[in-house]
Write a protein that binds this DNA or RNA. Structure first.
Lengths: 343, 343
DNA sequence: TTTAGCACTCTTGCACTTCAAGTGCTAACA
DNA sequence: TGTTAGCACTTGAAGTGCAAGAGTGCTAAA
């Protein structure tokens, strides 16, 4: 059913007010603060209908109205005004985008920090690291008994590990290992590694098979080990300043989600499209965080989702502001990536 | 003033009970639960004296007694029983110690997680990264325009960065840079780098001076950039399960400290000795976290403090347990380091 | 020196009242 | 027919008074 213009205006005003103050909105407030030129009674009638249509609800009889999930949904989809980034906000975001840190991980950490600061909600960033394969192995000797093993991976990252042996490591050993690894252990996901390849690898190594096996194990570890490094969370305390979280058991729910970072990763993995996603209330994650919403924007480079950045806030979060920030940031980032690729 | 044996026993019992239940301890409880063979009235008299000596206090007239900071202090120093690690605890800690991850940072992260799990408090680890110098520079080519720069540092860590240039990078350029860097930019803290060395460096490079300068800048960044990676916190939600933090504003204080990780670093830097330190209540950090205590154990290798691990809990934390865990872990770790050095 | 007894203090929980906010409904009005 | 004024109703929040319970300090007796 199509809402009348007046109903839309009232619904929008209710949600705006609720976002701003976090308290149920009554007819009196609406007639006084928004210039409707209507009496409270009329507004009440309209709100009553909006309630039966499922856009609003009352916490209890003698309270004002609060938006329902579907109220927020329509608000986001057709009522909300676009948020205009201020000059300061734009310049902070630009500064962030200019600030290219070598490592993706560092950069996304910084990004979540800045976004959290700007929006005043908790922000998180996710970097997808699934299915990396090694493009090349390199060795750099440190001393007689130790060396650095480098894994040059297809995700553009380099992993390094200082390997310390008990017995002296000869140059021969290193070059044999290097040849064998680069011949038979390249461009394959570690979990797919089949026995024939391993046998071939050990044959190539001959007397150094033990050494090689050890290296392979380390390489395997190095690929797996970064799994949990991919989530950065910032501004957790920000959430606690909203009255809806002024209650330890709720606050705990929130913190627990951020401690078990995997759950956040799953948010990313569930994301089908590359568009910005808004999950209102417990539309996601099985109500793990009550009364809160997620906004998540995937980052897409060359057709692949390489990660994303998101914001968690109370259900009544300032969606337009959050959306504006995320869109701007990701747009800037994607442009940068594409430019770089063209060089 | 020396405490009588009986006073000591009573003080110990009060603190033990308060640590266990978190509620003011009354004379009745003490006479019933601990076998004193004394009447409540006698115990009351003793507690009264302990109060005037400053070891106990009353939240209000009709409540039991609660330890003061100096009560805890004497408890820790002379009353507390040694905690004996259980078989499971020892085996978990040993497992952790065996589980050598390549990177120190990863390892300490894991360590704080395990310690938090075992003690049921929030744990944090700090890695000191100040004043690292580069022992050697290495380059590994990736493709015509990019390569990996490796910094082998005196703290045993290796830092790597994928460097992408716009123009092709020749082998000559790389080897010239390598020679120049390894000749003149080694074993010196980046902030101390003086002009003469830079001039010498650029002279050595000749026509590649620009390239070299760029590399130097990147190296400088790489050394600085890890600054904030050094603190790991685990089990923050654990704190919230203690009634003293069942109050959002206090919980916020705690979380804020963990977000501004620098403050935790300063705890380490303030630590003079290499012994385990206990900071009770607000004896530290200007009462940033009310009603809570810190236990911190520095990790010392070859005369240098390279970091540390600590636990934050309510003021009435189970000091003996926490201390036992930290001591065991750090002892094991230090032994491992020393062994490794002997190889 | 220890203890029993007692008066005192303070918190906690409960029932109760009052107050304000906001509603829905009805009837009057333009 | 849509709008509004008025009123009864509901409900949560806040405040009050009271009794119960826990723990103390003090005094006097053992």
């Amino acid at each position: 059913m199509e809402l009348s213009e007046r109903k839309k205006r009232i619904l929008k005003s209710v949600i705006d007010a609720y976002i701003a103050f976090g308290e149920p909105v009554g007819s009196k407030y609406l007639t006084e603060s928004c210039s409707f030129n209507l009496s409270p009674a009329t507004v009440r009638n309209e709100m009553n209908e909006l309630e039966s249509l499922g856009y609003l609800e009352q916490p209890h009889t003698s309270a004002g109205r609060v938006p329902t999930t579907s109220g927020y949904r329509t608000y986001i989809e057709l009522l909300m005004e676009r948020y205009r980034l201020t000059v300061e906000e734009v310049s902070l975001l630009n500064e962030l985008l200019d600030f290219k840190l070598g490592e993706m991980s560092k950069f996304m950490d910084e990004a979540s920090r800045v976004i959290s600061e700007l929006t005043n909600y908790t922000a998180f960033s996710v970097i997808k690291k699934k299915g990396v394969t090694v493009k090349r192995y390199e060795f750099v000797r440190v001393d007689g008994k130790s060396f650095i093993m480098l894994l040059i991976c297809d995700d553009g990252n380099i992993r390094s590990r200082h390997v310390q042996e008990i017995i002296p490591v000869t140059d021969e050993m290193l070059s044999a290992a290097s040849v064998a690894l680069n011949e038979s252990m390249v461009n394959v996901a570690p979990e797919r590694l089949a026995l024939p390849a391993i046998i071939k690898f050990e044959e190539m190594l001959g007397e150094y098979a033990d050494f090689g096996r050890r290296l392979l194990k380390i390489a395997y570890e190095m690929l797996g080990v970064t799994e949990d490094e991919q989530v950065h969370v910032s501004g957790v305390t920000k959430l606690l300043s909203y009255p809806e979280f002024y209650n330890v058991s709720k606050a705990r729910c929130v913190l627990e989600v951020f401690e078990r970072k995997r759950d956040l990763v799953s948010v990313l993995l569930d994301t089908k499209s590359n568009e910005l996603n808004v999950y209102i209330g417990d539309e996601i994650m099985d109500a793990l965080i009550p009364d809160s919403s997620f906004v998540f924007k995937p980052i897409n480079v060359g057709g692949n989702t390489i990660g994303g950045i998101g914001v968690v806030g109370p259900k009544r979060m300032s969606y337009n502001k959050v959306i504006a920030h995320l869109e701007y940031f990701v747009k800037g980032l994607t442009e940068e990536f594409t430019e770089e690729d063209n060089n």
